[in-house]
């Protein structure tokens, strides 16, 4: 939702990044304000997942130019854990399985780390159990998932629900959802997106990175950006996503080249 006079959360200017010496992001500009939902769309290899990981601080990517301000501070100066504590959250496209670490233990550690950061009360295992079970209802998750290893043997849909559960626990200011719709059947998609919608508020913002329009049927974006070859080449409203769904991505590129050449 676009709110009048809402604060800028994220300001990306001319962001360039490389992986193994190959430039993937070639100058990204993006401004996200509180309350907004942005969709970043594009074909495979356009750089949209790279953008998500660079914002979360993955060290496989080297930032070679530009700036990123988060709530006015330089995000690029922060380690990944500091970004998380500052309120940036990345829902992974491929959530990592960690056998041997109980999901409940992991979730509580993460939750308490953020509570401590916010100067709020940490929860002991019993208190947390009650708290997390409530949150799990939102995502129609079976409490059995607490006792299993982190994402261990979870189906694709279960992993994505576990990601959004983490989002619900950590209450980030900026949530970046990287292809959260991939691998979801229609029921799981409905549940996951319902969860995201309930978490969206005037005080936070959501950036959806997605290949397809279908998630946007459930989470309505305020802005749709099209990425190609490491740049955002077109920005529009939610109707742009429908255009892309019908016409594919090629026409945006053609239009962009024409505009650049003109």
């Amino acid at each position: 939702m676009i709110y009048h006079d809402s604060k800028v959360l994220l300001e990306v200017r001319g962001l360039r990044a490389t992986v193994n010496g190959i430039e993937i992001l070639k100058g990204i500009d993006l401004t996200v304000r509180s309350g907004e939902v942005h969709a970043i769309m594009g074909t495979n290899g356009s750089g949209k997942s790279t953008l998500a990981k660079v914002l979360a601080g993955h060290d496989a990517y080297e930032v070679t130019g530009g700036s990123v301000l988060f709530q006015g501070s330089n995000l690029l100066d922060l380690a990944p854990e500091e970004r998380a504590r500052a309120g940036v959250f990345l829902a992974f496209q491929y959530p990592i399985e960690i056998p041997g670490v109980a999901n409940s233990h992991f979730l509580r550690l993460a939750y308490n780390t953020l509570q401590a950061q916010r100067g709020e009360e940490e929860l002991d295992p019993l208190e947390f159990e009650d708290f997390v079970r409530e949150k799990m209802k939102l995502l129609e998750m079976n409490p059995d998932f607490l006792d299993r290893g982190v994402n261990e043997g979870f189906s694709g849909g279960e992993k994505k629900r576990n990601e959004i559960l983490q989002m619900a626990l950590l209450e980030p200011r900026l949530a970046i959802l990287d292809e959260t719709d991939s691998g979801l059947d229609i029921d799981a998609l409905r549940i996951v997106t319902k969860g995201v919608n309930q978490l969206a508020s005037q005080d936070n913002a959501i950036v959806l990175v997605t290949h397809y329009q279908r998630m946007l049927n459930y989470i309505e974006p305020d802005f749709v950006h099209v990425m190609r070859a490491g740049r955002i080449i077109k920005t529009g409203g939610k109707e742009l996503a429908l255009d892309l769904e019908m016409r594919g991505y090629d026409w945006v590129g053609v239009e962009h080249r024409a505009a650049v050449e003109a």
């Binding site: 979360a56 992974f92 041997g100 950590l170």
Partner: peptide
């Protein structure tokens, strides 16, 4: 990276993974 992206300090993340092993 996954653990750190959830706010866990480097040392905590390493301990947890070592423990899990």
């Amino acid at each position: 990276f996954y653990l750190k992206s959830r706010g866990l300090a480097e040392a905590t993340a390493r301990n947890l993974l070592t423990y899990a092993f």
